[in-house]
């Protein structure tokens, strides 16, 4: 019969329409904003039939660990015992070299006494109007010092003053990195051999070795 195909199609739409209500019934009295309900609504399972909408400012989808937005720089926790707030970056420049759109600018620090380069950036800028969120800087940083942030709520009214991030704006505590990427930061720490910065661990190991030698000799 002519028109049957259209009716069949409308049946599909009707089913979708009704499904949203049937699903609502399941959450009756419990509220659909609970974590359980949210998981069910957003899951890839066949159980999910109804409303798919994430009502953004009232509920947001938490982004996964590997999510990448604008990069940030890791610093020591501000309440750390040793070197609170010390930046992890050694200004080796690999991130600036590997950056595809070349949006990273680093001024290497110099020791005021000797005039020789020291492993710390004097200035560090990222132009977020150029950054393509590709994550290569974080991938190739040998010191785990630059990481991709998860905070995407960055809309602003003015870009001339807001969109070149400087060192102060980029720096975030190590605690923050651990909180947004528990698994990855743990893997990295395991590879480094501890939760501290690679160089600190090296120093410590060296100190331990000399201490060992000293005790062994005496």
């Amino acid at each position: 019969m002519y028109g049957l195909g259209i009716l069949k199609g409308m049946g599909v739409t009707l089913k979708h329409f009704l499904d949203t209500y049937i699903e609502d019934l399941r959450f009756l009295g419990k509220g659909k904003r609970t974590d359980v309900a949210f998981n069910l609504r957003q899951s890839g399972s066949n159980q999910r039939l109804g409303l798919f909408t994430v009502e953004y400012p009232e509920e947001k989808i938490a982004v996964p660990e590997r999510f990448r937005f604008i990069p940030f720089l890791v610093i020591n926790n501000l309440d750390a015992e040793e070197d609170p707030g010390k930046i992890w970056c050694t200004s080796c420049g690999i991130c600036a070299k590997v950056c595809p759109p070349q949006c990273i600018w680093i001024v290497r620090g110099t020791d005021p006494e000797t005039g020789r380069p020291k492993p710390e950036p004097e200035e560090f800028y990222i132009d977020i109007d150029i950054c393509m969120n590709c994550g290569l800087c974080a991938e190739f940083c040998p010191f785990d010092a630059i990481k991709m942030d998860h905070d995407y709520e960055l809309a602003s009214y003015d870009r001339t003053t807001h969109h070149i991030f400087d060192k102060a704006r980029l720096s975030k505590e190590f605690r923050y990195w651990r909180s947004i990427a528990p698994t990855i930061s743990a893997e990295e720490a395991e590879a480094r051999g501890g939760w501290e910065h690679k160089d600190v661990l090296k120093e410590k190991a060296k100190a331990a070795r000399t201490a060992d030698k000293a005790t062994g000799a005496s």
């Binding site: 399972s45 994430v54 509920e59 947001k60 938490a62 660990e65 709520e153 990427a181 528990p182 698994t183």
Partner: peptide, 30 residues
């Protein structure tokens, strides 16, 4: 990754958490 898992950061973030392979199998098979 082992799990497809959100990490809460912003206000009102909702977490979802599923094992990756189960998630994949679900999508692909059903």
């Amino acid at each position: 990754p082992e799990r497809i898992q959100g990490i809460p950061l912003l206000a009102n973030d909702r977490v979802r958490n599923e094992a990756t392979l189960d998630y994949l199998a679900n999508i692909i098979n059903e």
